[in-house]
Design a protein around this nucleic acid. Sequence first.
DNA 1: GCGACAG
DNA 2: ATCTTGTCGC
Length: 228
Amino acid sequence: MLPKMNHSWELSEGEALAMQDKLTSKVVKDDRYGHIQLVAGVDVAYAKNSDKLIAAIVVLNAKTLEVVEKVTAEAKVQFPYVPGLFSFRELPPLIKAFAKLKNSPDLIVCDGQGYAHPRRFGLACHLGVIFDVPTIGCGKTRLLGEFDGVGLERGNVAPLVDNNEVIGNVLRTQTGVNPIYVSIGHRISLSAATNWVLKLSPKYRLPETTRQADHEVREKLKVEESLF
DNA sequence: GCGACAG
DNA sequence: ATCTTGTCGC
């Protein structure tokens, strides 16, 4: 799986903002996909005493949630952490990881926001547009928006609103546990994205895709740092 | 002006 | 994200 084009990511903040403005118009907000058999989770970890980033992609069988493939890749930090420009920090290692992937996931769940973003172009949207694949943004905390409160039972949902626009859903994946924030990335509707995330979270707060990718990335980082 | 601010 | 111990609970 290869990106449409090579990105050098030698960008200033201003250039990154301009790129978001240019790409945000390419986001497709409704369901455009066939049967989803493979679902992937992506995550990135940061080395504690270097500028190294490690990305992992784990592909799961969408029906059984069994792991089909795992890949990791690393890159140097080349963009500071700026809320709203998160994708420019985590995309470089992720793109390298995608180049190693043998399977083509039918849907990708990201660890961060998608449409629920100041300029409606979070990491999930950026990744989706670059690879032209359906993506979902799934955050543990909220970057933007307000909501009235969400029921305590698994499956309860409340719309996340910003500037009178529904930008995502607050979803309770487990009864009595803090909710997560779901938004579309690309080529999927918010309702379908929400249903998928709930389906992918049968036992824990976070979807299995994210949990597996998180586990993989931590494991890789642990091995590399104990290597000297 | 002050605080908030995905990971 | 990362830095960090014990501790409460299933």
